[in-house]
Each structure stands twice: as C-alpha cells, then as structure tokens.
C-alpha cells in the first residue's frame, strides 16, 4: 500500500465524501488505527455542520417583491419577442439596453431615461435632441467645463459646477486605444452616468439619466456595464497609468 500523507486536505476530503474508494479505504484504516486521526475527521464533519447552521436558509429567503417582479418581468419580456420574431437570438450585448427599455417600462416611468449615443451622434436611428429640448442632467453634458474636468481630474475626484457636482469614476481605453472616462453628474433634478471618449475633444458616447429617490431595480449599473463590455472597454487605468493618459490629453488638446 502506498504511503498516504494524511494532510488536513485529505482528511477533510474524506469527511466530505470526495475521496476515491482506495484512498478512502486507507483513511478508514488509519482512523481505526489511530484515534487522533478519527478525531480530526470528526472535527471536519462537525465544522461542516457549524457552517451550515451559520448560513440558514432564511438568510436569503426574504426576496423583496421588487426583485422578484424585476426578474419575472425580464423573463416575460424574453418570452414575447421570442414568440414574435422567432429569428435572431437575443444576446447579451448592445441589444440589452433596447430590450430593457421595453422590459422595464415601470422602471422608466419611475425615472430612468437612457440615451445610447452612437459615434455619429445618433440615438436608435434618431438624432440626439438638442440640449434645449432635454431637461435634466443629460442636458448639461455638453458643457465645456465638463470637458475640462475630464481632461484634468483623476478618477474618484469630485468637482463643483454651477448646477451640480461631477465625479469622475474611471479611466479606460477602448481596443483601438481611444481614451474614455466614465463619470457621474449630480444635479438638483437628478443624476446621470455617462461615458465620454476622446475624438478631437471629449464626445459623450453613452449617457443614462435617473431621477432621484425612485427605486430603480439595479438597472443603471447593468446598462453601463453592458455598454462598457460591448464598447470593448479595457481595465481601468490606475495611478501612474491614468496620470500618463491624462498627460497625453493635455499635450493633444
């Protein structure tokens, strides 16, 4: 019989029923020969029970109605277009925001407005409404002061504006090395999360507006996330990498 080193891992695996028969038989023999080993196995069994008791089922059982409704609405929304179209599969991706607008009609009514702005400045086939036509924080995004802040502020910094506050969230590059910044603008009428990329000056490529106070079932983060994923956003540039990227902006205004 090959020598088996009875490490904690091996004894734990035995207690968890994870060992193959021949090895398990060896451990059983060792337990019979040596009470100390039997005890160690018993303790691993006991630890499993302790952990189970510490995470009772009730811990997650209190599913909030909003969460349940949100997930069910999503399921329902996937069922409908599938029946109607029977064609293209619904994929996570750029289609997601569009699907969501339909799905989360309630959330929209509760106060999310979402603009998905293509490189050429089009939004789902329509021209972006001019600033004058838009109320709320998205209207402010074309303010040149924001451009300056995006060129100069490190991530995490907040700055005051006459109509609110801006916080730069992160800095990253797209696959083609275009420099982009995610930021959040908070005004009296609400907040908006946006991404601006360098193309000559700063161009807003994505913006999402939410009213304050309304319960928004997670949506915002996901939209931004799926946008970033699909835009091919790289890892956030941190510390020296971010400083260097911003220095480039300064030199090529």
């Amino acid at each position: 019989m090959a020598q088996l080193h009875l490490t904690d891992e091996v004894l734990m695996a035995f207690a968890d029923g994870e060992l193959d028969d021949p090895v398990a038989a060896t451990v059983e023999q060792a337990m019979a020969d040596n009470p100390a080993i039997a005890r160690r196995v018993t303790e691993f069994l006991r630890s499993r029970r302790l952990v189970r008791s510490a995470f009772p089922e009730e811990m997650g059982a209190d599913v909030p109605p909003e969460l349940l409704a949100g997930v069910q609405a999503r399921i329902a929304s996937l069922e409908q277009p599938m029946r109607a179209e029977a064609g293209p599969e619904v994929r996570a991706g750029f289609r997601l925001p569009v699907v969501r607008t339909r799905t989360f009609g309630m959330a929209l009514a509760a106060g999310i407005a979402c603009l998905l702005i293509g490189a050429a400045g089009y939004f789902v086939g329509r021209q972006i409404p001019s600033s004058a036509q838009l109320a709320g924080p998205i209207a402010q995004l074309s303010d040149p002061r924001i451009g300056r802040i995006l060129s100069e502020s490190r991530s995490g910094q907040e700055q005051d504006l006459p109509y609110g506050r801006i916080r730069v969230v992160s800095t990253f590059r797209l696959a083609d090395r275009t420099l982009c910044r995610e930021f959040r603008l908070q005004t009296a009428s609400g907040g908006s999360n946006a991404v601006a990329c360098r193309n000559g000056g700063w161009r807003i490529t994505f913006a999402m507006e939410e009213a304050t106070g309304a319960y928004v079932p997670s949506g915002g983060d996901d939209l931004m996330e799926s946008y970033l994923q699909n835009a091919g956003a790289g890892q956030p540039l941190l510390d020296a990498a971010e400083i260097e990227a911003l220095r480039d902006v300064e030199h090529h205004p």
């Binding site: 995470f55 997650g60 059982a61 209190d62 349940l68 399921i75 599938m82």
Partner: peptide
C-alpha cells in the same frame, strides 16, 4: 432562455444568500 426562468426564480433565495456572503 425562458426555459431556465422558473428555475432561476426558485433559486432566488439561495442566490441572495450567496450575494450576501
């Protein structure tokens, strides 16, 4: 996608527990 929908709904409490952890 919706074939998994009901399984997902049933799993919500356990997903929440994992998320809490």
């Amino acid at each position: 996608p919706t074939a998994i929908g009901q399984e997902l709904v049933a799993l919500l409490p356990r997903l929440r527990r994992f998320a809490l952890v």
